[in-house]
Simulated scan of single mutants.
Amino acid sequence: MDAVRLGVEDFLADLAHQRVASPHTVAAYRRDLAALAGVAGDRPLAGLDHALLRRALMQLHGKGLAARSLARTLSAWRAYYRWLARRGAIAADPSDGLRAPKQPRTLPKALAVDQVTALLDASPDDELETRDKAMFELFYSSGLRLSELATLDVDGIDFASGTVTVTGKRSKTRTVPVGTKATAALREWLKERGSTALAEELALFVSRRGTRLAVRSIERRLGRWATKQGLGLHVHPHMLRHSFASHLLQSSGDLRAVQEMLGHSNIATTQIYTHLDFQHLAKVYDAAHPRARKK
């Protein structure tokens, strides 16, 4: 292995072990650096200059890479060159001053309360649907990420305190409340789980084979469930997390509490839900205010 590739692998190893980045993040950074290596050709990454990095970014943009993807790619490049600079491997950071195209601001999609009710009030027809109902109730009740729910073990649920403890990004652990409907659905699933799960399996949600349910399987089951309930739109797990945050903020107005329950390290990430809240208020205004009604 040549020195440049070894440098990239050292960086990725440091990213995984020292910064506790997720395997998904490490894999994404590996792809982004491979894309840069493809543009660089025979030139070592450590020897690239600002102009070449800028040209590489423009080439990716010209190939149709979305602004969000370009921003993530540039973030990986910056992280790598800053890592090199801290170790004295380069005299100057060639990514300094580079800017990705501006991303259009998109608000997360959230279900209306009556849509969530239609989705979650349906009764399961078999033991797998009993599991599914428990998963979806927990998603909406506690605002979990898909990865958090997939990695949740049985001992993560504390029925005595009415809480669930999950491990989120950067291996950070948080404990959030579980609502009564989700608690009831979980108890029903645990009655069935013993006949499905393998003896040594710790996962709360297991497949028909008795092993931990995969992320993709959870996504498919939610899509199937939403179709069965006649919602008429594609529902994905993150939509339930968005709905949790939006509805909680509408009811409480407590941004800090929502931030803590979502596991956001920066409140700016949570503030996007204030825009959703404003949309809700604007609809109420348009419908109710005498001077807002259309003639």
Rank of each mutant, 00 (worst) to 15 (best):
Arg31Asp: 11
Glu260Ser: 10
Arg256Ile: 11
Glu192Cys: 14
Tyr273Phe: 09
Ile90Tyr: 04
Ala287Gly: 02
Leu213Phe: 07
Ala268Phe: 05
Arg174Trp: 04
Met135Gln: 08
Gly64Ile: 00
Arg30Phe: 05
Ile218Lys: 04
Leu128Cys: 05
Asp93Asn: 13
Thr106Gly: 11
Ala37Val: 00
Gly41Pro: 07
Thr25Pro: 04
Val20Gln: 12
Arg31Phe: 01
Pro237Leu: 09
Arg174Cys: 09
Ala56Met: 07
Gly7Tyr: 03
Thr167His: 05
His242Asn: 10
Leu57Phe: 03
Met135Cys: 14
Val116Asn: 06
Leu152Ile: 08
Gln18Arg: 14
Val116Gly: 00
Trp225Ala: 08
Arg256Thr: 11
Val215Ala: 12
Thr167Phe: 04
Leu276Asp: 06
Thr167Asp: 02
Val4His: 11
Ala268Ile: 05
Arg86Pro: 02
Gly253Pro: 10
Val154Arg: 15
Leu74Thr: 01
Gln271Glu: 14
Val178Trp: 00
Gly156Trp: 07
Ala214Asp: 14
Ala67Asn: 11
Leu222Ala: 07
Pro23His: 00
Gly263Ile: 03
Leu48Ile: 12
Ala46Leu: 08
Leu107Glu: 09
Pro177Cys: 08
Thr151Asp: 15
Ala110Glu: 01
Leu33Cys: 02
Gly232Ser: 02
Ala67Thr: 07
Arg99Met: 14
Ile272Trp: 06
Arg241Cys: 04
